Computed example of a mutant assay.
Amino acid sequence: MEFLTSSNKILISIKIIILFYAINIYAKDIEVISKYCKINWTQNYIECKGISAEGQSRYSAIRSAEIIAKSHILEFVQGIKITSEINVKSALAANSTIIESLNGAIMGARVMKSEYLKSSGYGEAYVRLNIGSDILESILNDPSIKIVSEDNFSFFSTNLYADTYYSNQELMTIRKIYKDLVDRDKNRLPLLSYVKTIINKIEDTKTTGIIIDATGIENFEIAAIPRIRDEEGNELYPKNIVSKETIFRKNGVVCYEAILNDAQKNKRVASSPLVIKAKSIYGHKTSDLVIDLKNKKILLLNKKLLRNAKVLILLSL
């Protein structure tokens, strides 16, 4: 019996180890990797490696490796989709000032790590650019690029239902309506209980972010600025909601995850995100996601979260 017990303990230990490694294997960021570069769409950055020629001094080798890594970024970044219609390469072709701005960002790319192999006299360097605060800032600050609007959020007219979501911003107004009804002795009006229901729902629901669930959506392509649309094609996000400054500060309009459990823990959407299911892509716009009417109302009633770009897209691997 002792032998069987020991065997069982060994088997249990092995299963725990396998489970631990399985969690680490599958709980990965969404990355696109080439020979010298990778783009991380969960944390929204590009990182490239540069390798110098051999037979150099430490300073020369590392400096050369950094310059080579930055040249790899310049080449790699041009293939990134900004929206369904525009990639970085086409934006650069459209305006020479963007080239200067992006070159400046690349020259200032952060060196994440550098190494020198003394025996061979060559160096390696890894440099990084952020998608939002570096690349998009270089492009969107050019007035000729009309991708996102500078306008304030335009409120869409929607029918009010007590079983939908309301933002905390609306709570003060609803409380005042409720108090007015009470003060005027209109307690018997059906509207009173309706408003009270809304207040209770807001107080019970503290949504900290929005997850757009695009799992199972065929042909969706990752972009730095994906669009969320309704079934008629009207753009709901980010147009007229997120300012350029917020995009740069939050390092992008959205981030991406591939596992719901990871997405629900992502700091961008914090501890209690709302999950909205996408229906499809919008026609040939492969980076635009469509949501139905019910989810449109829910999305637009979370204005504060949208304005702060607290949005994550969940993808299938």
Rank of each mutant, 00 (worst) to 15 (best):
N8K: 10
I14M: 07
F20R: 02
F20W: 00
A22L: 02
Y26A: 00
Y26D: 00
E31N: 09
V32W: 00
I33L: 06
K38F: 01
Y45G: 13
G50Q: 06
S52R: 09
R58I: 06
A69H: 03
K70R: 13
H72D: 02
L74G: 12
E75A: 12
V77N: 08
S84Y: 01
A94F: 05
I98C: 07
I99P: 02
I99G: 03
N103A: 09
R110P: 07
E115S: 15
Y116R: 08
V127K: 05
G132V: 09
G132K: 04
S133L: 04
I139V: 15
I139H: 11
L140K: 07
L140A: 10
N141T: 14
S144M: 10
S144A: 14
K146G: 11
I147R: 01
I147M: 06
I147G: 01
E150W: 01
F153I: 13
S154I: 14
D163H: 11
S167P: 09
Q169G: 15
I174Q: 01
R175S: 12
D180P: 11
D180S: 15
L181F: 05
V182S: 12
R188P: 09
L192Q: 12
V195L: 13
T197R: 15
I198K: 11
K201E: 12
E203S: 14
E203T: 12
E203V: 13
T207R: 10
T208E: 10
G209K: 10
G209D: 10
G209A: 14
G209Q: 10
I225Y: 05
P226R: 11
R227F: 13
D230S: 13
E232M: 11
E232N: 15
E235G: 07
E235W: 01
L236G: 04
K239W: 05
F248I: 13
K250E: 12
N251G: 13
N251R: 04
N251C: 13
N251H: 06
N251T: 09
A263T: 03
N266H: 15
K267M: 07
V269H: 01
A270D: 12
I276H: 02
A278H: 04
S280R: 07
S280T: 09
I281E: 00
G283N: 08
H284G: 07
T286C: 04
S287N: 06
S287M: 04
D288P: 05
V290Q: 02
N295F: 05
K303T: 04
K304Y: 00
K304V: 01
L306P: 02
R307P: 04
A309W: 00
V311F: 03
L312H: 04
I313P: 03
S316L: 07
